[in-house]
């Protein structure tokens, strides 16, 4: 097993862990952590699986660089929203679904 494939598998697990976290965790800061795990997982799969035969591939590496920047942008926006919500309501969990 190459390290590429190994880390792709780790990536898959991290992705699944992250998705479950985003779905299940109500605390918003942790949900942001979970989202970052999910992203890292996807990045690992992207690079790891492409390099499963042991040769470096610049194309997915460049893609992951793009992805990391996008992820940090999303994280920062999420944090801004969480902080604003906290400032307005004093809570760190989203309110129950209000359908009307």
């Amino acid at each position: 097993m190459t390290s590429g494939l190994l880390f792709a598998c780790v990536g898959a697990l991290l992705f699944v862990m992250g998705v479950s976290g985003v779905l299940l965790i109500r605390h918003l800061l942790r949900r942001i952590l979970a989202f970052n795990l999910m992203g890292s997982g996807a990045f690992l799969v992207l690079v790891g699986l492409a390099q499963r035969h042991g040769v470096a591939d610049p194309v997915p590496q460049a893609m992951v660089l793009t992805g990391i920047v996008v992820a940090v942008a999303a994280t920062a926006l999420a944090l801004a929203l969480v902080r604003r919500l906290h400032a307005l309501t004093g809570k760190l969990e989203p309110p129950e679904a209000d359908d009307d």
């Binding site: 390290s3 590429g4 880390f7 970052n36 890292s40 990045f43 690079v47 790891g48 390099q51 470096a56 590496q61 460049a62 992951v64 660089l65 990391i68 920047v69 992820a71 940090v72």
Partner: peptide, 15 residues
């Protein structure tokens, strides 16, 4: 380890 030093740098700085 995945021979991706560019990402490693970015991850360290940004991630």
């Amino acid at each position: 380890r995945l021979a991706a030093p560019d990402i490693a740098l970015a991850e360290a700085a940004i991630g």
